[in-house]
Amino acid sequence: MQATIQLVRDPGSHERSAIAASLIEFNASRIGRPTEDKLLVLTVTEPETGNIIGGLWGSTIHDHLYVDLLVVPEALRHGGIGRRLMALAEQEAIDRGCRGAWLTTHSFQARGFYERLGYEAFGIMDDFPPGHSFIFLRKRFETPGDLAS
């Protein structure tokens, strides 16, 4: 088999789908089809306008919650909204059968916040962006079976 390599300057969903298709088939041959990647979204709205001013955007797949975005407006920080968003997302994930959660943050963002919620760092990429770190965090959920042992 021969192939050529090209730089695609303006890629779209077609290119991503075509590239991903082979990987999806390979993975399925090893682990079976994953459970459906199901969105998990919570919004924080301004009562007067109904405008979305923050929230949590994530998904559940492979029995884990992935938190992609967590945003609490600066004026509302330290009032428990972030903690409530995470608690609601984690409970929904548990209700969906998840065993744990993972997310990423930067050293200038919210590492301490997540660690106070029981998350632990399992990977750190230093100097990304320069002068800062990119941190991978995870949390295992306690299940009734865990409590019995």
Rank of each mutant, 00 (worst) to 15 (best):
I135G: 02
I52H: 02
A121Q: 05
R83T: 14
D10R: 12
M86G: 01
A18L: 15
L70R: 01
D63V: 01
M86D: 02
H14C: 09
L117S: 03
G54Y: 00
S59G: 13
A20M: 15
T60G: 03
V72H: 03
S133W: 02
Q109K: 00
L65G: 01
D127P: 04
E74D: 13
A89N: 05
S22K: 13
D68W: 03
G80S: 09
L103Y: 01
H78T: 10
P129Q: 00
A121M: 04
G50Q: 08
I81C: 05
S107W: 01
M1G: 15
L65Y: 01
Q109E: 07
G80L: 07
L69P: 01
E48R: 12
R83G: 09
A121K: 01
G82W: 04
G118K: 04
T4M: 13
V8L: 14
Q6M: 10
G131R: 02
S29Y: 08
L69T: 10
L65T: 04
G32K: 08
P47M: 05
A89H: 07
H64L: 12
L56V: 05
N27L: 06
E90W: 00
A21M: 09
P73C: 01
G79H: 15
H106E: 12
T4Q: 14
A75L: 11
G55N: 06
H14Y: 12
T49S: 14
R99E: 11
F113T: 04
D63T: 08
W102Y: 14
T49P: 10
A93M: 03
V44N: 05
C98N: 09
V72S: 02
L103S: 03
A121W: 00
I19G: 06
H64F: 12
D10H: 15
F136S: 07
I94Q: 08
G80R: 03
H62Y: 14
E115P: 04
I53Q: 09
L88E: 15
L23D: 09
E92T: 09
L88Q: 13
A121D: 05
W57L: 14
A121S: 10
L39M: 12
E120W: 09
P130H: 12
G82L: 04
P34E: 10
T45I: 10
Y114M: 09
V44E: 08
L56D: 02
F134P: 02
I5A: 14
E92A: 13
A93K: 03
G100L: 03
A20Q: 15
H78V: 07
R33M: 11
G54V: 07
R16W: 08
G118A: 05
R33E: 15
I61Q: 13
R77P: 10
H64M: 15
S107I: 04
M125E: 12
M125P: 05
I31W: 15
A21F: 04
P47W: 06
F108V: 02
T104N: 02
I94D: 03
G55Y: 03
V44I: 14
E92L: 07
M1Y: 13
L23S: 08
T105Q: 06
T104E: 07
S13Y: 11
W102E: 06
V8T: 07
L40R: 01
A3K: 13
